Measured scan of single mutants.
Amino acid sequence: TEDARKEAKKIIDNGGSPDEAAKFIKKYGLSEDQARELVKRAL
């Protein structure tokens, strides 16, 4: 979702790792793979 993508970008912009961002956005109901893909797109 757009919200999850924004959250991921915010985490990374604040110095978080892509892994942290992926873990965080899994709470939106995404699978591990979906979360990682979304983080990649957010970069």
Score class of each variant (00 low, 15 high):
G15H: 06
K40M: 13
N14Y: 06
L38I: 15
Y28P: 00
P18F: 14
I11K: 03
E7Q: 11
G15E: 02
E20P: 03
Q34S: 05
P18H: 06
G16E: 04
R36F: 10
I11P: 03
E32R: 00
E2N: 09
Y28W: 05
A42Q: 07
S31N: 10
I11E: 01
Q34E: 13
E7G: 04
K23Y: 09
T1L: 15
E32H: 03
I25V: 06
D33H: 09
L38W: 00
L38R: 00
G16C: 15
A21Y: 14
A42F: 14
G29V: 00
A4F: 08
P18R: 05
T1S: 11
L30I: 08
I12T: 02
S17N: 06
E7W: 11
E2I: 10
D3N: 12
K23E: 15
K9F: 06
K26T: 15
K9A: 07
S17C: 11
A21F: 15
L30F: 12
A8K: 02
E7C: 15
A22I: 15
K26D: 13
I25G: 03
N14L: 10
F24D: 10
E2R: 11
K40S: 11
G16D: 05
S17P: 05
L43Y: 04
K10Y: 09
S31G: 05
A42C: 12
G15T: 04
Y28F: 13
A42V: 15
P18V: 13
S17D: 09
S17E: 05
A21W: 15
E37T: 04
G29M: 02
R41C: 15
S17W: 08
I25S: 01
S31I: 00
A8T: 04
P18E: 12
E32V: 06
G15C: 09
N14R: 13
G15L: 03
K23D: 15
A22K: 10
T1A: 12
I25F: 06
E2H: 10
S31D: 11
Q34C: 14
K10R: 14
L30H: 00
L38E: 04
S31P: 03
F24I: 15
R41N: 11
D19V: 08
S31Q: 01
D3T: 13
E37F: 00
K27P: 00
E20A: 07
A42K: 01
L38S: 00
D33V: 09
E20W: 11
A42R: 01
I25Q: 03
S17L: 06
Y28G: 02
R36S: 07
R36H: 09
I11G: 01
A35I: 13
K6G: 06
E37R: 05
L43I: 13
I11Q: 02
K10P: 01
G16T: 02
I12A: 03
N14M: 12
R41G: 08
A4W: 13
K26L: 15
K6D: 07
D3I: 14
Y28M: 10
I25Y: 06
Y28D: 06
A4E: 01
K40V: 09
I25T: 01
Y28S: 03
Y28A: 03
D19L: 07
K40N: 12
L30Y: 09
I12F: 06
G16K: 03
R5A: 12
I25E: 10
E2S: 10
I12N: 03
G29I: 00
P18M: 12
K40H: 14
I11A: 02
G16H: 07
E32N: 03
K27M: 09
G29K: 03
F24P: 06
S31K: 00
L30K: 01
R5V: 15
K26E: 15
G16A: 06
G15D: 04
A42P: 00
